[in-house]
């Protein structure tokens, strides 16, 4: 494959938006203004960053030149660009967290996982049949970059250790059967 500046490639941009009306539209404007083709928007409703911002993940297609302009334009518009790159999420893994999930600030746990692993939380379920003060379980589906699953799991383990949460990891390796 050639690597010319004219090649259109897929990019993922992670943004953190201030929670106010019109902010999402304002973030998307620089993409179309600079010739980018929007592929998908993943809006993590209900999951706020510690500052109260809303994490949004945008997949788009553009040439490398266009992409640089898009990132510059987003930053000029005062939009918080957390991560921008050609990395496409291609692997998925599921983990279960067990412990005092609610007491240890679940939303912070999820933010930490996304921030330090670069993985994206695609799906999330909490089960707290005995009430939120008791131990509960959560299932997370994470989208990771290809080949990163092991690194992501060890980061998750470190975050969980700090909060005294237990991780039920997926079994990787061997032939999928």
């Amino acid at each position: 494959m050639s690597d010319s500046a004219e090649d259109v490639r897929a990019y993922t941009v992670r943004l953190e938006l201030v929670d106010r009306p019109g902010e999402l539209l304002r973030a998307l404007q620089p993409i179309s203004d600079n010739g980018g083709n929007l592929l998908s928007i993943f809006h993590e409703r209900g999951n706020l960053t510690p500052r109260g911002d809303i994490p949004v993940e945008v997949d788009l297609e553009a040439t490398p030149g266009q992409f640089d302009n898009i990132v510059d334009a987003l930053r000029d518009a005062g939009i918080n660009v957390i991560q921008a790159g050609a990395e496409q999420y291609s692997d998925e893994l599921t983990i279960v967290l067990v412990g005092h999930l609610v007491d240890t600030d679940l939303s912070d746990t999820l933010s930490q996982i996304q921030r330090s692993t670069g993985a994206s939380v695609r799906d999330f379920s909490l089960s707290a049949p005995e009430g939120e003060e008791k131990e509960s379980s959560a299932r997370l589906r994470l989208a990771t970059q290809k080949g990163q699953a092991r690194d992501v799991i060890s980061e998750v383990r470190a975050i969980a250790d700090e909060k005294e949460l237990r991780v039920v990891e997926p079994l990787l390796g061997g032939e999928a059967v």
Binding site: T94, V96, V98, S127, A128, P129, A138, R141
Partner: peptide, 26 residues
């Protein structure tokens, strides 16, 4: 790590997703 601290809710969540939890040695 053992299974003695595993709540039933963890197995429920696994089950909902077509998975199960087993004590695996590697």
């Amino acid at each position: 790590q053992g299974i003695h601290e595993l709540p039933a809710s963890a197995l429920d969540l696994a089950d909902d997703d077509g998975q199960t939890i087993r004590l695996v040695g590697e």
